[in-house]
């Protein structure tokens, strides 16, 4: 049975006043509805483009390769040094890449949380996992931190291979292209495509057990965006003086960011899904705010002798990084405030 709503005056017909829990539930439901609707719309758009290209009902129907912002990254070196693109890459890739660059610099990386079709597929797998009550795989924080560098390893390999072969080298391995390119439907060639299929199957399989596993550990575009995120104006920021340390924002984060912790270094792995913001029960503690990017750089979190934070500026959410270790005998003031130990 859900929580009872309380009427303002107790009279029948009076406007019910929602409890804090009900307000939070409503905010979370509203967010999910909107976010998944946007994701679904983009997935439908991309699949429609791929079908059009596969059927070639219209001459020049763009392939999914031509619509991917990562194509701009893959061809960038070749374009700058020779003025031409690597194979299968066109001006449209640069346009989409420019749009993504502008959006990340101004509005933060909401692309991954709201628009990327492969992110949407992983979110759908998480939904399936929860519906089937399959337990999630917990990655130890140290391992998690190390694995996240995988994105930059993949990025480096792709950049070098693209620049040296002048081909869209990654297309044969990219799970996004394998899935949404629909070559498996229109021109299946198991001998040539089995590597891509195997990678896709592995990524989808792991994404069932670890939420957004591809985004966290391997996506090269995610790596680029996490670097660019240092320059974002809009970001999810914590207000340490308002935060009660309840940790309700931590669990919903799809990419495993330790949202509630004050940190010395800013995490830019946030995908702008707003799950944490909607789950935060404390007004003003976790909000989207605008600030000059360098505000975060020059205000590192420091702890005073009593173990409390001295930072007054905005605190960006961070990936599993903890503040400098406290003396074990010093209780966490924020947790005390929230009635936890």
């Amino acid at each position: 049975m859900g929580p009872q709503s309380v009427t303002r005056s107790g009279e029948p017909g009076a406007k019910p006043r929602l409890t804090a829990y009900q307000r939070r539930l409503r905010a979370v439901t509203q967010l999910h509805r909107r976010r998944h609707l946007v994701q679904l719309a983009v997935v439908v758009l991309i699949v429609a483009m791929a079908v059009r290209h596969g059927l070639e009902t219209e001459v020049g129907a763009p392939s999914v390769d031509a619509l991917c912002p990562f194509g701009a990254v893959e061809t960038f070196w070749t374009w700058v040094t020779t003025g031409s693109f690597i194979s299968k890459i066109h001006a449209s890739n640069l346009v989409v890449g420019l749009g993504l660059l502008l959006s990340v610099l101004i509005a933060g990386n909401a692309f991954c949380g709201w628009i990327c079709p492969f992110g949407a597929v992983q979110d759908a797998l998480t939904w399936v996992r929860r519906a089937l009550h399959i337990p999630t795989l917990t990655v130890a924080p140290r391992v998690d931190r190390a694995l996240r560098y995988g994105r930059f390893v993949v990025l480096a390999i792709v950049l070098v291979a693209s620049a040296t072969t002048l081909k869209l080298w990654f297309a044969d391995f990219d799970p996004y292209v394998t899935l949404f390119g629909l070559h498996w439907l229109f021109e299946p060639d198991p001998a040539a495509m089995w590597i891509g299929w195997a990678i896709l199957a592995a990524v989808l399989g792991v994404s069932v057990l670890v939420e957004r596993a591809w985004c966290r550990y391997l996506c090269p575009l995610g790596g680029v965006l996490s670097v660019l995120g240092h320059l974002s104006i809009l970001r999810v920021r914590r207000n340490p003086s308002a935060c009660t340390g309840c940790d309700l924002c931590v669990k919903p984060c799809p990419v495993g960011i330790d949202v509630a912790k004050p940190v010395a270094a800013v995490s830019t792995d946030c995908i702008g899904c707003l799950e944490c913001v909607s789950n935060c029960p404390t007004g003003g503690a976790l909000e989207v705010s605008a600030a000059a990017p360098w505000t975060a750089w020059r205000k590192p979190i420091t702890l005073d002798d009593a173990g409390s934070t001295r930072t007054r500026g905005p605190v960006a959410v961070a990936i599993g990084r903890r503040p400098p270790s406290r003396d074990a005998s010093t209780p966490d003031p924020t947790r005390q405030e929230a009635g936890q130990s």
Binding site: R34, R35, V38, A107, G108, A110, G113, W114, L234, R237, G272, L274, V277, S278, G284, E287, V288, S289, A290, A291, A292, T295, G313, P314
Partner: peptide, 11 residues
Amino acid sequence: GTAYVNRWVMP
């Protein structure tokens, strides 16, 4: 140094 904005502005 920060200005809160409506959360929906981001997406």
